[in-house]
Design a protein around this nucleic acid. Structure first.
Length: 212
DNA sequence: ATGAAGATCGCG
DNA sequence: GCGATCTTCATC
């Protein structure tokens, strides 16, 4: 079937579950960024972390604030914040409306066409395959590559928007189900509280993961 | 008002 | 290991 060749769009209802359930299932999905000039940058998600209400590392642990407001809203929205005054980080809001939770997108394996396009933006610079693999290996790096900043927070992830998600290919879904391809589950990184909660997942052996 | 810390990254 | 760089939030 023709339709079988095209990955399905991730919709809000699929994301309306607890973030620790959604986070591992987002591994292998594709994040698509449509730039204002129409250019698309596509990357497969290879690393995620879940954050939830009741979790001391979650931005919404204490109160509802202007920054974390969108995390309390319905699933399927973006939550983008600035960290260390320099980098942006992208989250996907999950769970029911009123429940603060989200999945941090920590690393992408760029699609080859996108990787070529991104590396050609820096003229006079030659990239090894290893460098290409690591172009989006980190939450701050992937936002820089995809030109994601706080102006993109609170938007509904959908192909009519500058950002959306597509499900795993059938082949990858099969490989993960049969454990030909595996996921690693471990503790989250870069935080000082909730360090023992194992809510980080990544594609085992992927060269594009931020930290193996 | 003021200050401390932060879901990072690249350099040495 | 450290610094860059600036927003956010808690406290004064």
């Amino acid at each position: 079937m023709i339709s079988g060749l095209i990955n399905e769009i991730v919709d809000a209802s699929w994301l309306a579950r607890p973030s620790p359930r959604v986070a591992p299932e987002l591994i292998g999905c594709t994040l698509v960024r449509q730039l204002p000039n129409g250019e698309q940058i596509r990357g497969m998600i290879v690393e995620t972390e879940a954050y939830e209400t009741g979790d001391p590392a979650c931005h919404a642990y204490r109160h509802r604030t202007p920054r974390n407001e969108v995390m309390f809203g319905p699933a399927g929205m973006s939550y983008v914040y600035l960290i260390y005054g320099i980098y942006h980080c992208l989250n996907i809001v999950t769970d029911l409306d009123g429940v603060a939770s989200a999945v941090l997108i920590r690393a992408l394996q760029l699609n080859p066409v996108s990787a070529a396009w991104v590396s050609q933006r820096q003229p006079n610079q030659k990239f090894s395959q290893k460098q290409i693999d690591r172009l989006a290996a980190g939450p701050g790096k992937l936002c820089r590559i995809m030109e994601i900043d706080r102006s993109l927070t609170g938007l509904f992830l959908h192909p009519s928007q500058p950002l959306w998600l597509e499900h795993r290919s059938v082949d990858l879904q099969t490989a993960i189900a049969q454990e030909t391809v595996k996921l690693t589950q471990t503790t989250r990184i870069g935080i000082s509280q909730g360090t023992d909660i194992p809510w980080r997942w990544y594609l085992t052996h992927s060269p594009a993961v931020s930290k193996a």
